[in-house]
Design a binder for these strands. Structure first.
Length: 550
RNA sequence: GCGCCCGUAGCUCAACUGGACAGAGCAACGGACUUCUAAUCCGUAGGUCACAGGUUCGAAUCCUGUCGGGCGUACCA
């Protein structure tokens, strides 16, 4: 049991039995004070009760302490401070023993059961298979993967999904684009589509198809050629997307194809469902959804006047399909240019009767690549994009993932290529990894010096400030992980790891681990091992390697 | 015009969702390698939390307005 849980239980007990007994629930907030003088854990519960009890916060705090029954081994100091905070200080033995929990739980340390096995699906990247993945996809990929890891650690049953838009207009354009290039390679002219794809990769694909299949497509009718080439190009691009993501350490549980919805007319069933519920009307020859009834700005078209189902309708069917597969909570990660689209999807899902607040969209803000102090302009239309693969080749997987995850996802990100490429102290990734490698080295050195890892180390010897503050940081890990999961804020993990690594490096310089004092060496080895576990667990959540040597 | 996101140290970002004196890294300056890795550590300096009101015991955080930056506002996907 963590110290926080212990205090929470005791406070609840005091609030139910003592003179301050409360009829209603009191939401007790316990948190780690910023300043060390304020102890290890503080609560503002007295201030929250003050208006209800019509007594001063300090007065309530004092009374509360009377009915609070705490083990003096665990909590060594309690005080009422400031406007009415109650500050608790844990004893050194509490912290020393906490190390045993870390060793015991190992790779599971940091996990919690908060999610209670809730079935969650998180869908991200989902780029059209009409081109290579770009750096924005790389950011979404890192964030989605880490969010999934966090939710899993918090006890949810999470699946990662990639939605493949393998049907519709953009695929037709892809086929026409490739076809134009293919014919050009054969010396024949075919007009390039107005809104076609201009990137060099289109040419590469055309050339590859020519090499593998010769000129056999030239003899087909135009439409047949377009379709055949569209399919081949689509599958080739999809395969290369999968490859890049896999190199990135990201493997999706499901690749869901839009065509499976269209093939089974699932979008039409959804349309009927919405009609049956009275949310569809006809105007100007099109079928409209009354999304304004659910707070959207205007109603939205489901079927065009030409009789074509809109992307929106298929997308609604897709999300309905997710629910039908048994997921209780859906998350999508979208680019900032789609924010206007959120409301209408939510509206449609409510219209279909799915529970409120079970579908949420996290917007991932754009990525600004900085090279030589200047931002690199990207233009999709001109085919000038920075490919994810280029980025990974240049800076490596660990650095890329770390940089993307270290910032709040809703803030635009300046990605400094020059900084990312530096293998020096300016680069924060190595700071954390170095701490891990350093510990591995200490443990190796201890073994060489004849000190095996101790079964029962005298942990009470760990009393130095540097040692205790390192342990405090370690003990905070589970709390950090579950907060990050609950708020869907991956950036908390890099921030935490940065601080933990700092605590460790400070300890390293202040306290020699392997020394003539065998007992002390053993105790410090346990501290090192515990730190190693937490660093490794944290790096694993981020999908980064935990190097044993650097 | 309307809607969403953002504005914190010279730069890149935190601040546990309303808590106590706003913290890190980089850059600058000054120190520490005969030691378990100096990819490290110690110290100095750096702030009107964009601005103005409001809400309350208490605001970087909530509400209103203003100013800046980004994005969106299709019977496209």
């Amino acid at each position: 049991m963590t110290g926080e849980q212990y205090l929470r239980d005791k406070l609840n007990q005091a609030l139910q039995t003592g003179e301050l007994a409360q009829p209603g629930d009191v939401n007790i907030i316990l948190e780690k004070p910023k300043m060390e003088e304020h102890g290890d854990m503080a609560t503002n519960v007295a201030m929250l009760l003050a208006p209800r009890l019509r007594r001063s916060p300090r007065d309530i705090a004092t009374a509360l302490l009377q009915s609070l029954d705490l083990d003096s081994e665990i909590v060594t100091k309690i005080e009422v401070a400031g406007a009415g905070f109650i500050n608790f200080t844990f004893g050194q033995s509490y912290y020393q023993k906490a190390l045993l929990t870390i060793l015991q739980e190992g790779a599971a340390f940091g996990n919690s059961s908060w999610g209670q096995g809730k079935r969650i699906q998180i869908e991200f990247v989902s780029a059209n298979p009409t081109g290579p993945l770009n750096v924005v996809s790389a950011r979404a990929a890192a964030l989605g993967d880490v969010m999934a890891n966090l939710l899993r650690a918090a006890g949810c049953a999470v699946e990662k999904e990639y939605y493949v838009n393998d049907a519709g207009r953009q695929i037709r354009l892809l086929g026409m684009s490739v076809s134009a290039r293919y014919m050009a390679l054969l010396g024949k002219t075919e007009p390039f589509p107005e809104e076609g794809y201009h990137g060099d990769y289109i040419n590469d694909i055309a050339r590859q198809i020519l090499e593998e299949h010769g000129d056999s497509f030239a003899g087909l009718g135009t439409k047949e050629r377009w379709q055949a080439l569209a399919e081949m190009a689509r599958e080739a691009l999809l395969a290369s997307q999968k490859e890049v993501l896999s190199d990135y350490g990201l493997n999706f549980d499901t690749w869901f194809r839009e065509s499976t919805l269209r093939d089974t007319d699932e979008h039409l069933k959804v349309l009927k469902n919405l009609q049956a519920r009275g949310y569809v009307y006809e105007a100007d020859g099109a079928q409209w959804f009354r999304s304004t009834e659910f707070g959207d700005e205007k109603d939205r078209v489901l079927v065009t006047s030409e009789g074509e189902p809109t992307y929106f309708l298929v997308d609604v069917a897709y999300h309905a399909n997710k629910y039908e597969r048994g997921f209780e909570q859906l998350y999508d990660l979208w680019g900032p240019d789609h924010h206007g689209y959120i409301q209408r999807v939510k509206a449609a899902l409510l219209g279909l009767g799915y529970p409120k607040d079970t579908f949420d969209v996290k917007l991932i803000q754009q990525v600004n690549l900085i090279r030589g102090g200047e931002s690199v302009k990207m233009s999709k239309r001109a085919g000038k994009i920075i490919e994810m693969k280029e980025l990974l080749d240049e800076v490596g997987v660990d650095v890329a993932r770390y940089f993307f995850v270290a910032r709040r996802s809703q803030s635009p990100l300046d990605f400094d290529m020059d900084l990312a490429k530096k293998t020096s102290d300016e680069n924060p990734v190595y700071y954390v990894q170095y701490a891990h490698a350093r510990i591995c080295n200490i443990i190796r050195h201890a073994e060489e010096s004849g000190i095996a890892f101790p079964r029962n180390a005298p942990l009470e010897l760990l009393t130095d400030d540097a040692e205790i503050s390192l342990i405090k940081k370690l003990v905070d890990f589970p709390n950090t992980v579950s907060k990050a999961a609950q708020q869907m804020e991956p950036h908390r993990i890099p921030t935490y790891l940065q601080e933990l690594a700092g605590s460790f490096h400070r300890f390293y310089h202040h306290c020699r681990v392997v020394s003539d004092d065998r007992s002390l060496s053993e105790a410090r080895l346990v501290l090192c091992k515990s730190t190693q576990i937490v660093l490794a667990n944290g790096l694993a959540l981020l999908g980064l390697s935990a190097p044993e040597r650097m």
